[in-house]
């Protein structure tokens, strides 16, 4: 799927929009140094400028709240990066996009370590394209306590849906079960990928980053 998703991505601007929802006992995913919370409901618009060798040479990633307020912006170009919330600047190497699967390939690698199995089902997507759903289920040998829940988790499941024609990840959910039999959908991700020119906002952030780095 990853090979299919990335094979034609050359000399283009790639726009990935991720809508993420976290359900935990905490109000957010932490408070950034500028006092802004990383929200449980967030929309991440990431723009990658990919050159003719498939390398990302510029990127702008904007995290917003569900009502459109900007949380943080990460920008990279010309070998340096800048984060608006931490005001960090530093080196940023060009890299190749290996997959558009929200790191699901890494989730699969853990299967081998833990001896879990993946269940694969053919599905039809809302846009009528053929899709495939992959479900990884794990029952813990020892119940797990995390900072995210007051309850102890006994089982976890990852459900990922891919568009078979493009190879793109469409959605990814992670569910935890607890000792009392209840369950929570820890994270829900919906992803849309388009190839389109950058917006004025994106170009403005690239210029702002250059000003911040040259300070």
């Amino acid at each position: 799927m990853n090979a299919r998703a990335t094979k034609d991505i050359k000399s283009v601007w790639l726009h990935i929009q991720e809508k993420k929802t976290f359900d935990t006992d905490t109000q957010n995913n932490g408070i950034l140094p500028n006092g802004v919370a990383i929200p449980n409901e967030q929309i991440n618009d990431t723009w990658y400028h990919v050159n003719d060798q498939g390398l990302v040479i510029e990127s702008v990633s904007i995290m917003r709240t569900a009502d459109g307020q900007i949380v943080q912006v990460g920008v990279s170009s010309n070998g340096t990066g800048w984060n608006s919330a931490t005001d960090e600047t530093g080196p940023q190497e060009q890299f190749k996009i290996e997959g558009l699967d929200s790191n699901f390939l890494n989730d699969l690698k853990w299967l081998e370590k833990f001896g879990d199995t993946a269940e694969i089902t053919n599905v039809v997507l809302p846009n009528s394209n053929p899709g495939v759903q992959i479900v990884i289920a794990t029952t813990y040998d020892t119940p797990v306590k995390t900072v995210d829940y007051s309850k102890v988790s006994t089982r976890a499941e990852t459900r990922a849906v891919f568009d078979s024609s493009t190879g793109y990840l469409v959605s990814k959910d992670i569910v935890f079960w607890f000792e009392d039999g209840s369950r929570r959908i820890f994270s829900q991700l919906k992803q849309e990928i388009t190839i389109e020119p950058p917006t004025d906002e994106v170009l403005n952030y690239l210029a702002e980053k250059d000003r911040e780095v040259s300070k």
Binding site: G30, P33, I38, S61, G81, T86, Q92
Partner: peptide, 16 residues
């Protein structure tokens, strides 16, 4: 403690 996204230069989780 924080989860950092190098590809996008952003933080997915930050707790001080």
């Amino acid at each position: 403690v924080g989860e950092y996204c190098p590809a996008t230069y952003t933080w997915a989780y930050w707790n001080q």
